[in-house]
């Protein structure tokens, strides 16, 4: 066991973990933050995307011990004061999901993608979401959602 201390969605947790604990398992199984999904075993689908010290990363390819001392944001940490984050609201408004399995990862990747880019193009969105696979939507409405949120966020976070 290795002791780690990680701040998740603003709250600091100090815990003993087995070194092999993937960050995604720490979130889901130890903290019961099950919004972060596991969609593959090849690190390709992006369903497990979270923010680690402000960068979008795949939590299935990151050990919890690598996040020791870091700040992590998960989908559960995006809304504030009962208000959805503009990216969450845009997915709702633009029908950016069907089964919803890819959605937490899509939203975590997309919020970072549009930072500082209020006028991001469709092509840039498609290229920037290459690490996130959706089996349902055909991506059209995801692109639409991300574009709407980017305009709404005006380059902010």
């Amino acid at each position: 066991m290795t002791q780690i201390s990680v701040t998740i969605n603003g709250k600091t947790y100090t815990k003993d973990v087995e070194p092999r604990t993937l960050l995604v398992h720490f979130l889901r199984d130890h903290l019961e933050l099950t919004g972060t999904n596991i969609g593959c075993d090849t690190s390709q689908c992006g369903a497990c995307t979270v923010h680690l010290d402000g960068l979008a990363v795949k939590s299935c390819a990151t050990l919890t011990v690598q996040a020791d001392g870091a700040a992590v944001t998960t989908i559960e940490g995006l809304a504030s004061n009962g208000q959805l984050h503009p990216m969450q609201q845009a997915f709702w408004d633009n029908h950016g999901l069907q089964c919803g399995y890819c959605t937490p990862g899509m939203i975590m990747a997309a919020t970072k993608l549009v930072e500082g880019r209020p006028e991001i193009s469709d092509d840039e969105i498609r290229h920037g979401l290459e690490g996130n696979i959706c089996r349902c939507t055909g991506y059209e409405n995801i692109v639409r959602s991300v574009k709407a949120a980017a305009a709404q966020m005006g380059g902010g976070v």
Partner: peptide
């Protein structure tokens, strides 16, 4: 390389 998440790590 890969995608933005892979390039970040």
């Amino acid at each position: 390389i890969g995608d933005p998440q892979v390039r970040n790590r």
